[in-house]
C-alpha cells in the first residue's frame, strides 16, 4: 500500500525534468528519417538537374536556392539525409557485430588472451575514429560501402571494450555462476544471461556511436575521402559550399544545421534511453 503511494509520488517527478530530451531527440531524428523516406519517393528536382541559375538564393522554385552548378540545394540535402542515416546505421551494425564478438571473446577467454586483446583495444581506442577510418578508406578506395566498413571497423574497438567490461560484470553475478555450474554451455549463457543484461547500457553507447559515425562520414566527405558523387553527403555539400560561403551562405549553413540536428537528436535520444534504463544516473551528466 505505502509502496504504491511512494511510486505514484516519485514517478511523474522523476520523468518530467529529463523527458524533454527524449521528446526533442525523437522529433529531430524523426524529421531526418522522414526526409530520407520522402527522398526515396519524391525529390523536388533531379539531383543531376543543373538547369537552375547558379547560386540562386532561397525562395521561388528552388526553396533553398542552388549551388554553384545550378543544382537544387533542397534536393541535395534530402539525399544527404538518406546517406547520413545509411552510414550511421550501417557503421553501427558493422561496429556492433565485430565489437560485441571481440568483447565477448575477450571476456570468456583465458586471462593471457584477454589481456592481449584489452591492450590492443586500448591502443586502437587512443586513435580517433576519423583517423582510423581515413586509413581504412585509403586501403579500400572510396565508395559508400567502404566508408561504412571503415567507420564500423574503427568504432568496433570502443564497442568491444565496453562489451568486455559489461560482460565481465555480468559473469561475476551469482545467477550466472549458478547457470555455469548447473551445466549451461556458454552460448546459452550469452543468449540468456549476458546479452539481455548488457543490452541497456550497450544500446545507449551504440546510439552515441551513431552520432560519431555521422560526423566521421561528414568529415571524410569534407576531406574528399568520402563516397564519390552522386552521393550528396552533407560533408561534401559543405566542402563544395566553402568557396561560395559569402555569396551564398545558405549552402554552407543548411547542411551544417542538418548535421547538428541529426547528431544532437541521436544524443538526446541516447540520454533519454539511459535515463529510462538507469534512473540513478539521471543527475550526474
Amino acid at each position: 500500500m505505502s509502496a504504491t503511494v511512494i511510486a505514484q509520488t516519485i514517478e511523474p517527478r522523476a520523468l518530467r525534468p529529463r523527458s524533454w530530451t527524449l521528446v526533442v531527440g525523437l522529433v529531430l531524428v524523426g524529421a531526418v528519417v522522414a526526409t530520407a523516406l520522402v527522398s526515396l519517393l519524391w525529390l523536388p528536382f533531379s539531383p543531376e538537374d543543373t538547369t537552375g541559375s547558379r547560386l540562386e538564393g532561397p525562395g521561388g522554385a528552388h526553396w533553398l536556392g542552388t549551388d554553384r552548378l545550378g543544382r537544387d540545394l533542397a534536393t541535395q540535402l534530402m539525399i544527404g539525409a538518406r546517406i547520413a542515416l545509411l552510414v550511421g546505421l550501417g557503421s553501427v551494425a558493422v561496429g556492433a557485430i565485430i565489437g560485441i564478438t571481440i568483447g565477448l571473446t575477450a571476456a570468456f577467454a583465458a586471462s593471457w588472451l584477454d589481456d592481449t586483446i584489452s591492450a590492443a583495444l586500448d591502443v586502437v581506442i587512443a586513435f580517433p575514429v576519423l583517423l582510423l577510418a581515413m586509413l581504412i578508406v585509403a586501403a579500400q578506395g572510396s565508395s559508400l560501402a567502404s566508408v561504412i566498413l571503415a567507420i564500423g571497423l574503427a568504432m568496433s574497438a570502443i564497442v568491444a571494450r565496453l562489451t568486455r567490461v559489461l560482460t565481465k560484470r555480468v559473469l561475476a553475478e551469482q545467477f550466472v555462476t549458478a547457470a555455469r555450474t548447473s551445466g549451461t554451455r556458454w552460448p546459452g549463457i550469452v543468449v540468456r544471461h549476458i546479452l539481455p543484461n548488457i543490452w541497456p547500457t550497450l544500446s545507449v553507447n551504440l546510439a552515441l556511436q551513431f552520432g560519431v559515425a555521422v560526423l566521421a562520414e561528414a568529415s571524410l566527405s569534407y576531406l574528399g575521402l568520402g563516397a564519390p558523387p552522386p552521393n550528396a553527403s552533407w560533408g561534401r555539400l559543405l566542402q563544395e559550399a566553402q568557396g561560395t560561403v559569402v555569396t551564398a551562405p545558405i549552402g554552407a549553413i543548411a547542411p551544417g544545421l542538418a548535421l547538428i540536428a541529426l547528431v544532437l537528436g541521436v544524443n538526446f535520444v541516447a540520454d533519454g534511453l539511459r535515463d529510462v534504463a538507469d534512473p540513478s544516473r539521471r543527475r550526474s551528466r
Binding site: 552520432g211 560526423l215 568529415s219 560533408g235 559550399a241 554552407a252 549553413i253 551544417g256 547538428i260 544532437l264
Partner: peptide, 18 residues
C-alpha cells in the same frame, strides 16, 4: 556544452572564416 558533440569542427571553421 551539449552542442560540443554534435557540431562538426570544419563547419565552425567555415563560418568563422566567412
Amino acid at each position: 556544452s551539449q552542442l560540443g558533440v554534435a557540431v562538426p569542427v570544419f563547419w565552425v571553421g567555415i563560418l568563422l572564416v566567412s
